[in-house]
């Protein structure tokens, strides 16, 4: 009776969870069926698509590193400390999660037309250039990375850090020697999430960086451009290229991360 109940329980979990897995599999299947290997080869032959692949991978990687440099300290601060205005900071960090992506792009565009923005532009041209791609991605994906790191540090028992303090460690030492090593898997999760989000970011990138082939067109923008002229098969072929690139990088990251985790 108990075993039968257990089987039904597992079956119910599988049905509920499996429905989503099936949906994603179906999406990929129709993408594959709607296009063809020849179409994928054809889009890979286009110089602007090859440039988009390169820019997508490079910019997503830069964005991820920058996001981690912000998310780890901010997530730790939000998890371990209390300070005036903390609720406001938490709210601000979450704003990019709820704002429509298009609004983030328009806001960045307007920001760089203000007096301080023009000063920055005079030193480093940003709008409609590669830095705009990175800044647009960074503005959105850092919120996800911060949230992931905050949850990671929340899940690490602070007593180990307190023990380190009683044994003579400084606060920075406890962070470096106890909290950070314990948060390694969380950092990997945050990096993976940030990279994947950055690769797929479209709205703010298109508005703030434009869609200049060979310069600021990233893979999601290329999908948009192909769909705008009715080339849905080409758009889906580019989408499949994006899935393949993301798949390779994420699997490699996971393997390298697990190996590093095993060594520690």
């Amino acid at each position: 009776m108990t075993r039968a109940a257990d089987r039904w329980f597992v079956l119910a979990l599988a049905v509920l969870g499996g429905s989503y897995v099936l949906l994603v599999a179906a999406l990929l299947a129709v993408d594959v069926l709607y296009t063809s290997p020849g179409q994928v080869r054809a889009v890979l032959d286009e110089p602007y698509i090859r440039a988009a692949i390169r820019l997508s991978v490079l910019s997503a990687t830069v964005t991820t590193i920058l996001a981690l440099w912000v998310a780890v300290p901010l997530g730790y601060l939000l998890s371990r400390t209390a300070f005036p205005g903390k609720a406001v900071v938490e709210l601000l960090v979450d704003v990019p999660l709820v704002l429509p992506p298009l609004v983030v792009g328009i806001s960045l565009l307007v920001l760089f037309q203000t007096a301080p923005g023009r000063v920055v532009e005079a030193v480093v041209p940003v709008t409609y250039r590669v830095p705009a791609v990175i800044l647009a991605q960074f503005a959105v994906v850092t919120a996800f990375a911060v949230r992931t790191m905050r949850v990671t540090f929340d899940g690490i028992d602070p007593r180990a850090e307190r023990v380190a303090l009683t044994l003579g460690c400084s606060r920075a030492g406890a962070f470096r020697r106890v909290a950070l090593p314990a948060a390694r898997r969380g950092m990997l999760a945050a990096a993976t999430l940030a990279w994947a989000r950055a690769l797929g970011e479209f709205g703010p990138v298109q508005v703030f960086a434009g869609a200049t082939p060979g310069k600021t067109v990233v893979l999601p923008t290329a999908v948009f451009l192909e769909a705008q002229v009715g080339r849905l098969d080409a758009a889906l072929a580019v989408s499949l290229v994006m899935v393949a690139v993301a798949g390779v990088v994420l699997v490699l990251t996971r393997l390298l991360g697990l190996r590093a985790g095993d060594r520690s």
């Binding site: 440039a51 490079l58 830069v62 590193i65 590669v130 200049t212 060979g214 310069k215």
Partner: peptide
Amino acid sequence: VLAILLYRDAGPGLH
């Protein structure tokens, strides 16, 4: 390294 690669890409572009 990535910044250098992107800077090189952003220069002459496809032309």
